[in-house]
């Protein structure tokens, strides 16, 4: 592979960009990398393409404030400069935060730190309802998998939530499994609310960062 250097690009996916799929995101990134003129490494083979590998894909509609992908550069390029160039060519709602030398491998990612903003006229009441829900012995929701539907108990994942009531909103913070060993989608809580409590508030979900096993930030 010669002298190639791994570089981790940190970015946000918000606004209009939260409505594009992970596949669309990779296409946008590939075009921007091509435009940036950075000395990116191409995969070998019949149909060479720019090497990019992403951490944990975001679900459609979920914003990400500190997402990352790894690329490889074949020549020495300043990290600051690389970030600047890439930022210039991306759509405005995919914004590059920085470029850095990766410290942790992606398989060290264990959790996602999520913020859920639920719309509510009476946020304290909604919080009570959520507490009631989580006081059940088990909170079963149907999960769609490749093998069909199965019931899972989401209770253990959501008991540690922090909450904050604001006028018109209830904000929740949940740290949920998110990694190659398995992930819990924050929207499962909303499904449980719908199934068990018949509540369907509008929600905005943001993944603020990705964490390691010891809950420290991935770097």
């Amino acid at each position: 592979m010669g002298d190639v250097k791994n570089v981790r690009i940190w970015f946000q996916k918000t606004g209009a960009a939260k409505y594009i799929s992970h596949l669309d995101l990779t296409r946008c990134m590939a075009r921007a990398l091509k435009l940036s003129g950075l000395p990116v490494w191409y995969t070998e083979g019949f149909n060479p393409h720019i090497y990019m590998t992403f951490s944990m894909p975001l679900s459609l509609g979920v914003s990400g404030l500190r997402e990352c992908m790894d690329i490889r550069l074949t020549e020495e390029a300043g990290l600051e400069e690389a970030a600047e160039k890439l930022r210039h060519y991306l759509p405005q709602d995919i914004s590059v935060l920085s470029a850095a030398v990766p410290e942790d491998p992606f398989d060290a990612i264990a959790y996602g730190d999520y913020e859920l903003r639920l719309e509510s006229e009476a946020p304290e009441c909604l919080w009570l309802a959520i507490q009631e829900l989580l006081a059940q012995d088990a909170v079963l929701v149907k999960k769609h998998t490749k093998k069909g539907e199965k019931e899972v108990d989401i209770k253990p994942h959501f008991t540690q939530m922090e909450h904050k009531a604001m006028p018109g909103w209830l904000a929740l913070r949940a740290v949920l499994p998110c990694g190659l060993q398995g992930s819990v989608n924050p929207s499962l809580l909303l499904e449980a609310l719908s199934e068990h409590k018949n509540l369907r508030p509008y929600v905005e979900i943001t993944r603020t960062k990705l964490l390691k096993k010891d809950f420290s930030d991935i770097r």
């Binding site: 606004g15 209009a16 960009a17 409505y19 594009i20 799929s21 669309d24 946008c28 075009r31 921007a32 459609l60 509609g61 060519y89 991306l90 759509p91 405005q92 709602d93």
Partner: peptide, 10 residues
């Protein structure tokens, strides 16, 4: 495909 309706393209 909500991406149809949001603009914001480079």
């Amino acid at each position: 495909k909500p991406g149809r309706y949001v603009g914001g393209e480079a």
